[in-house]
């Protein structure tokens, strides 16, 4: 199963592209994806604890653009977004 994670705000720093791609063997929950992102950030930016903190504080939105909780299931190929702490206006 392929999950494309669109990046916004500070999370754009995680990649030169606007997204990250993940492959999973079976169904997962948002909390599993969050762990994957944390692991990637830890490996890529070991000195930057702020990035890790931002992932922990981020929400995720489904392909229907709804904010979803950590138990939301992902069971097919899809594109979702990571929503780090916001600050418009």
């Amino acid at each position: 199963m392929k999950i494309k994670l669109e990046l916004f705000g500070v999370c754009r720093e995680f990649s030169d592209q606007d997204y990250l791609n993940f492959n999973f063997d079976s169904e997962i929950k948002i909390k599993d994806l969050r762990k994957k992102v944390e692991s990637l950030v830890n490996k890529k930016f070991p000195e930057n604890k702020n990035f890790l903190e931002m992932v922990k504080k981020s929400a995720f939105s489904s392909q229907n653009n709804e904010i979803v909780n950590d138990d939301f299931k992902l069971d097919k190929n899809q594109t979702i977004s990571i929503i780090p702490p916001i600050g418009g206006g």
């Binding site: 929400a59 904010i67 780090p84 702490p85 916001i86 600050g87 418009g88 206006g89």
Partner: peptide
């Protein structure tokens, strides 16, 4: 908007590196 709308700010400074402002987590 400040509490709920997914918008982010990256500030540009005179003589210093740009910074993403910390922001507030969305209340799920």
């Amino acid at each position: 908007i400040k509490k709920k709308t997914p918008i982010w700010k990256k500030e540009h400074y005179l003589g210093e590196e740009t910074t993403w402002l910390e922001g507030k987590p969305i209340d799920i």
